[in-house]
Computed example of a mutant assay.
Amino acid sequence: MNIKISGHHVEITEGIKQSIESKFAKISKHYPSIMTLDSTITVEPHQQKLEVTTLYEGETVTVNASDKQLYAAIAKVAKKLEVSLARRKGVLTAKFNKKFVVPQTDLYQATT
């Protein structure tokens, strides 16, 4: 999986890169069809924000998290992304396993 990291008002250090890569390693094992993750780190006064966007089975999945500490925000966004991807996977399997329902007509009224 290719992870693109960009930052607004912050320099991306090697520690930040390693932290992001280690948190998303589990997701890449569970969802091998994901090829790229675009992550944007924004630093504001007393707030660290992280936004991650990816394409999964034809839909764009975007999650956001913010915290006072950057590494806590990274952990939050990793958990949110895993939940969002699981939800999307459930929608796809529900559509795949959906049974055809025959529309019912009111036979009682037609015979009387």
Rank of each mutant, 00 (worst) to 15 (best):
V10Q: 05
P45Y: 10
L92R: 03
T93W: 00
V101T: 14
E21L: 04
V52F: 05
K49R: 14
K17I: 04
H46Q: 13
E82C: 01
N2D: 14
K98E: 12
Q48H: 12
V83E: 11
H46S: 11
T112G: 11
V77I: 15
V91Y: 06
E57D: 05
K29V: 07
K95V: 02
N97Y: 08
T112W: 09
F24R: 01
P103I: 01
M1Q: 04
F100S: 04
E14Q: 11
E11W: 01
T112N: 14
T112F: 11
V91M: 08
E44K: 11
F100D: 06
G90E: 12
S28T: 10
L50A: 12
A94S: 07
S19P: 03
P45G: 08
Y31H: 07
V91C: 00
H9I: 01
I3S: 04
P32I: 01
S66V: 01
K76G: 02
T42I: 15
I5N: 09
P103R: 06
G7W: 07
I5P: 08
V77Y: 10
Y71K: 11
T93C: 00
T40D: 11
E51A: 10
I34N: 07
L85N: 04
S28F: 15
K4V: 12
I41C: 07
E14K: 09
K49H: 09
D106E: 06
V43Q: 09
S28A: 15
Q109A: 02
I3V: 14
L50G: 05
T54K: 02
I41S: 08
T111A: 12
K76C: 02
E11S: 07
A86R: 04
K4Y: 14
S84A: 15
H9E: 13
S22M: 06
G7A: 14
K99A: 06
G90N: 11
H30E: 13
H8I: 10
V10A: 07
T54R: 07
E82T: 07
K17E: 09
T105L: 13
P45D: 14
N64V: 02
E14T: 10
A72G: 09
P103Y: 03
T13V: 03
